[in-house]
Write a protein that binds this DNA or RNA. Structure first.
Length: 407
DNA sequence: TCTGGGGTCCTAGGACCC
DNA sequence: TCTGGGGTCCTAGGACCC
């Protein structure tokens, strides 16, 4: 989907069309924005169905923002200023202070995500989820899927999605997932691109290695040290040499990828491996000085994870924590229990144990709670689930050090 | 002006078992 | 009498993706 979060926001605020808009900074919902408008401008009759009447002047701008968020999506107008996803909001504010900043509203994006995916599976049932805004589709056996190399079906899908949602997408058609992913980037937004094996040398090899899905910043830097910059450079290298320098498995994969080889099937169904919640604090917190605040956040994270588990219908037995220090270094600890759990007090109990195994002298910027080794709740019940033991005194024990160890 | 949140997969060492 | 060869599970960290 093209600039998905931003495009969804533009559906309800069409007055922002064509303007630099960025999504990020914080998590909020439309109601919060309405609430603020009602307080600040009670002379208007604000309501959910009149969002398109909100004057431009009332929208928050990047320039007024102070905080630690990042940009998740930028409209194409905002990208002209050099603003892009994963960029810190404060940096984006320097590049384009007048851009409109909207908070993320995941519920809304999930809703549109389900809608466009339902439209796709109606046309082509073999679809693999790749997050909220991206999918792989197997055209092979769809009627008409081979016409004009797939272009006809790609156009049909684009039109069906646009007619239903007003959202545009870009489609890459290729013999495998690796090439299709790269092809989808060639004609954004609202484009179609077709790549065949015969196009490998002229369309793929000139691209920087970083364009391969699976080569990130670290691998790119290491490749550059060996003077490998384009996918073509990579394709020239000997397979064994790559395996010696990048590991047996990754090296072999690099070699295959550079030659456009990928035989991964479309996975139409998948089970989650873990469910987690984490939060970055507005300001760094200290385990001893801010232990009340940290304790409250910790409890809330456990409750959110528990609610997520129950909503999605899972229990888990590996409970873990993650924290990030003020120097951005992250550590994790986890613990596998004897039985499966899914309730907040039990999660908090186990996660609290993990917390005792980390250094809490440095200031913290992030805290997270994770549950892994998941099992479907039905399977758990079918095999005679044992009720989890709730700690006798939940939420009262000392979690973040104690006053005696002041630092 | 430092750097979100929710995930997956891989590696590597150690415990433990046969 | 100084040291096997598998296999699985657990844990921690890190790369990468959307």
């Amino acid at each position: 989907m093209d600039a998905f979060y931003a495009s969804v926001e533009l559906l309800r605020y069409p007055q922002l069309k064509g303007l630099p808009v960025v999504i990020g900074g914080g998590r909020r919902r439309v109601d919060d924005m309405l609430e603020r408008l009602r307080q600040e401008h009670p002379e208007h009759a604000w309501s959910e169905d009149k969002l398109d009447e909100i004057p431009l002047a009332f929208f928050p701008r990047l320039s007024g923002y102070t905080g630690r968020g990042v940009i998740t999506t930028a409209t194409y107008a905002a990208r002209q200023f050099g603003v892009g996803s994963a960029m810190g909001v404060m940096k984006a504010a320097k590049l384009c202070p007048d851009a409109i900043l909207l908070p993320v509203d995941f519920d809304q994006y999930r809703h549109y995500s389900q809608r466009f995916k339902a439209i796709i599976t109606d046309i082509a049932p073999l679809m693999e989820n790749r997050g909220v805004d991206e999918v792989y589709i197997d055209f092979t056996d769809v009627p008409g899927g081979q016409r004009e190399g797939g272009r006809v079906l790609a156009r049909l899908i684009q039109k069906a999605i646009f007619d239903d949602t007003g959202l545009t997408c870009s489609v890459g058609v290729a013999p495998n997932k690796l090439l299709a992913k790269m092809a989808s980037e060639f004609n954004k937004p609202n484009g179609i691109s077709i790549v065949t094996d015969a196009d490998l040398t002229d369309m793929i090899w000139p691209l920087p290695c970083r364009k391969v899905n699976g080569i990130g910043p670290k691998a790119e830097a290491k490749l550059a040290q060996h003077d490998i910059h384009t996918i073509g450079d990579l394709a020239e290298r000997d397979r064994v040499w790559l395996m010696q320098h990048f590991g047996k498995s990754y090296g072999a994969w690099l070699h295959d990828a550079a030659h456009g080889k990928d035989d991964r099937p479309i996975e139409t169904a998948s089970e989650p491996v873990s469910i987690s919640r984490e939060t970055t604090f507005e300001h760094d917190l200290h385990a001893v000085r801010d232990r009340e605040a940290l304790g409250a956040i910790f409890t809330q994270l456990c409750e959110q994870v528990a609610a997520d588990l129950q909503r999605k219908g899972y229990v888990g037995k590996t409970i873990g924590i993650k924290l990030r220090y003020d120097n951005f270094q992250s550590v994790t600890r986890d613990q596998t229990l004897e039985s499966y759990i899914h309730q907040a007090p039990a999660i908090r109990q186990a996660a609290g144990q993990c917390l005792k195994r980390v250094d809490l002298k440095r200031r913290l910027r992030l805290l997270g709670v994770r549950v892994g080794s998941l099992m479907k709740i039905e399977d758990w019940q079918a095999q005679g689930s044992r009720a989890e033991e709730t700690p006798a005194q939940p939420y009262t024990e000392s979690l973040f050090g104690d006053e005696s160890e002041q630092n």
